[in-house]
């Protein structure tokens, strides 16, 4: 899994029908200090994350699993909203 921040959303009407009903969010990766890096990418939302929220995602084949019963063509899925990232030392 990896950390990200929601920076926007993407709407497609013509798409693979397995993606119907799945919200697609625009995300940028963040590092442990909350600094965004890399180019924005599209991730399927399985948790109801809002714009600007810090989230964590899973990539690759596992990104299709949060959507029960159907396995949409997704290689990035938002699977959790983060409350805090802290160093314990």
């Amino acid at each position: 899994m990896y950390l990200g921040r929601i920076v926007g959303k993407v709407v497609c009407s013509a798409k693979d029908e397995l993606l119907n009903g799945i919200k697609m969010l625009l995300v940028r990766k963040i590092d442990g200090n909350g600094v965004m890096y890399g180019k924005p990418f599209v991730a399927c939302d399985s948790i109801g994350a809002g714009n600007g929220e810090t989230v964590f995602l899973c990539g690759g084949g596992e990104a299709a699993f949060p959507f029960i019963k159907k396995r949409p063509p997704s290689d990035a899925a938002v699977i959790g909203i983060i409350d805090s990232i802290r160093s314990e030392s």
Binding site: L3, G32, I47, F56, I79, I82, S84, I85, S87
Partner: peptide, 10 residues
């Protein structure tokens, strides 16, 4: 490096 806490998650 960090501990991550999340209550709303899969």
């Amino acid at each position: 490096v960090k501990k991550v806490v999340s209550t709303v998650k899969n």
